[in-house]
């Protein structure tokens, strides 16, 4: 039971962070299908820092540096989306798809290059961070980590930023009606950059949280196994609103956790369902949710439409 709660909370943190990231990007008017790729790169940044820090580093340094690295990598990677979709008015779905493929391929190449450089007989794409990972744990022996309170703080911060600050008001105006925003002197390009980069920051962090969830090494060939896509579904289910996203993340996180630990439950293991059912569940639920929530979508009105200063 404790295990289920642990995993639920871990996956909830991941999904919530990444979905909040998507939420910022979409509120600025840019659809971010590339969250998956952003997560991979964030995870890569964090993992490399964790594996390369000397063994005796203090927990605080490890936590701080790996989080920073994940965020920075996420931001840098999300620039790919920002440049293409904001400056070059590219098809945002296409760019996002390319970023997802590039994320896994790029991270694999980087990790393999590092591994083979260290040892030519180790052409694997795995990064290990056994000791560093312990720095994140709140209580020894349990999978409760620093990310959970951090995610909670970021949730509240996201809400305040979106609904209580000048920045949030301006950001959302760019996603709803960029021409209106421009007419009152708001720089739509800048705000959209801000939205996309924040999604990079949160997505990158989410990637780090994901790969430290109960494991001490990560195979980068596998990317992040569709979590970026699941986060998109969470964002839509959450109606682009932070607290509802948190609840949606909790629900999805629970089902995802169930697929990891269902064997520990008498009732569930007696049902003798193939494990793939639990893997599938979150996706099936998202699909069903979409069926019921897509008709009157609360999506930002101008999302996906490139903004051009010249057009009125």
């Amino acid at each position: 039971m404790i295990l289920l709660i642990q995993y639920t909370l871990v996956f909830t943190s991941v999904l919530m962070l990444v979905a909040l990231g998507g939420c910022f990007s979409e509120h600025s008017g840019v659809i971010n299908i590339g969250l998956e790729g952003i997560m991979v790169f964030g995870a890569l940044g964090g993992a490399l820092v964790m594996s390369s820090l000397p063994a005796g580093s203090s927990a605080f340094i490890i936590v701080l540096l790996s989080i920073l690295a994940a965020m920075v990598m996420g931001i840098i990677y999300s620039l790919l989306l920002a440049v293409a979709s904001i400056n070059f008015k590219a098809d945002q779905t296409l760019v996002g798809t390319a970023m997802n493929l590039l994320g896994t391929a790029g991270a694999t190449v980087i990790v393999k290059a590092i591994n083979t450089a260290a040892n030519p007989n180790n052409p694997s794409a795995t990064v290990q961070y056994i000791s560093a990972r312990k720095a994140f744990l709140l209580v020894n022996g349990y999978e409760f980590n620093w990310f959970m309170p951090l995610a909670l703080c970021l949730l509240i911060l996201a809400y305040v930023i979106l609904y209580k600050t000048r920045f949030g008001l301006r950001l959302m105006s760019c996603g709803e009606h960029p021409q209106a925003a421009a007419s009152v002197g708001i720089n739509v390009y800048k705000m959209r950059y801000a939205g996309v980069l924040i999604s990079g920051l949160l997505g990158g962090l989410g990637g780090l949280v994901y790969i430290t969830a109960g494991v001490s090494e990560w195979k980068f060939e596998n990317g992040v196994a569709g979590f970026g896509f699941l986060a998109l579904a969470v964002m839509i289910f959450g109606g682009w609103k932070p607290f509802r996203i948190a609840l949606a993340a909790l629900l999805f996180g629970f089902f995802r956790a169930l697929s990891n630990v269902y064997t520990g439950f008498d009732l569930l293991s007696r049902l003798n369902l193939p494990s793939t059912i639990y893997n599938m569940l979150p996706y099936i639920i998202s699909l069903i949710v979409l069926i019921f929530f897509s008709k009157n979508s609360a999506a930002p009105k101008a999302e996906g439409i490139p903004y051009d200063q010249g057009s009125r």
């Binding site: 009606h177 209106a180 007419s183």
Partner: peptide, 10 residues
């Protein structure tokens, strides 16, 4: 403006 520059959900 002829077409109002208002954000509908604000």
């Amino acid at each position: 403006h002829q077409h109002f520059k208002l954000v509908e959900c604000f």
